[in-house]
Design a protein around this nucleic acid. Structure first.
Lengths: 202, 202
DNA sequence: TGACTTTATTATTGATCGATACAAAAATAA
DNA sequence: TTATTTTTGTATCGATCAATAATAAAGTCA
């Protein structure tokens, strides 16, 4: 790190905070639905500062996708990876998805990738590779956790880890979709027991 | 029907064809990403004709949603309802989803509701109720087919029809999401056997 | 202090947005 | 024919879009 003070006038804002604010704005309004004025007000900076720091609208958008992939987008996956018991892990994954999808304090709902980024594939250059990678990485992480459970004797040896991981991933897409359509957390939690059973195949 | 000729200059375009062209445009570019110029070129009509016939942009958008819900959006569901054997029905449903999601001849990909309409909930007035209704109706139709299979002795009596139907629905969301991210039909078809097994719980 | 470097503010750019006013064109009704 | 009704094409509206030029402000250097 370089803590030495730089020459020139110092920044009046925090770069990562501004980037997170931009992500939340894109998340809530979509790429095309977000204007530069929306961004500058939410980020608390002026147009020229935005362009000097983050580039144009498209480059800023790609940076918010990277931020989400690296930091923010993994809460349910992390919950799934950290819980020791595999059945509890699946349940926690789904519960975290539902919680994050429905618990919005004026903020955005659901998954940034599924709700916003997915609609800009083929429209905004640079989104395609990021989407592809995000899905592949998540599938792999979910599958690895299942394989650990197999190795620990919690699941049968012929348990199809990758396919079940993909199913879990797609369940998340479904919950995000339903929460977008106005379903409450209680309604989504209704069949969580069935879902756990279906994922584990018991 | 009223086949008597109307007074005044006759229309130079077909209303339902124009509406379908509008739907495909929204489908491909999203609501905010579609300009009135995009619409008029795709529909082959002029601005004033569009406003006189369909109202403003928002009203036209809602009409395309209704068109999709009534006619176009049900191909996989219809496949699921018409096939007699339940296992084949599930397989046909998923195969149809994959086919429709990936087989784009320059046209739009995936599901209009999932890929486009879902992102305008809370942004465009009138979308919310339509999304909610579309999901509820599809869940109910899928569940009814499962119940028929139970009544026909093809499935166990304690088979949770509604929950399995919802799972099938969410699998569709997942396939649409993956196809948007660039997955080919072949890749999506890879684990279709596992999916059939997971839905039927066998 | 004053020269230099970087950021912030203000004002504005040409382009495009969604939406219309107006009048010519094309049909029926008299 | 002439009058009436509806749709058409043209031309354009004010507002907003993404993006910048020009200048003031705030810091480190000598």
């Amino acid at each position: 790190m370089n803590d030495t003070k730089k020459i020139g006038r110092p920044r009046g804002f925090d770069e990562s905070e501004a980037l997170e604010a931009a992500m939340n704005t894109f998340w809530a309004k979509g790429y095309d639905g977000t204007s530069m004025k929306d961004l500058t007000s939410a980020m608390g900076i002026s147009g020229p500062s935005l362009y000097a720091t983050f580039g144009d609208k498209r480059e800023l958008y790609l940076k918010t996708i990277d931020l989400y992939a690296d930091v923010d987008g993994c809460a349910p996956v992390v919950a799934f990876e950290t819980e020791a018991d595999i059945e509890t892990a699946v349940r926690d994954f789904l519960a975290t998805v539902i919680s994050y999808s429905t618990h919005s304090e004026g903020g955005p709902k659901g998954c940034f990738l599924a709700s916003c980024v997915a609609t800009t594939v083929g429209e905004v250059e640079g989104v395609d590779e990021r989407m592809e990678k995000a899905i592949r990485d998540t599938d792999a992480r979910l599958a690895r956790r299942f394989e650990n459970a197999i190795a620990a004797g919690q699941l049968a040896k012929d348990f199809p880890a990758l396919e079940r991981g993909r199913l879990l991933h797609d369940m998340r897409q479904g919950y995000v979709h339903r929460s977008r359509a106005g379903w409450s957390a209680d309604r989504l939690l209704e069949d969580i027991d069935d879902r756990v059973r279906m994922v584990l195949g018991t």
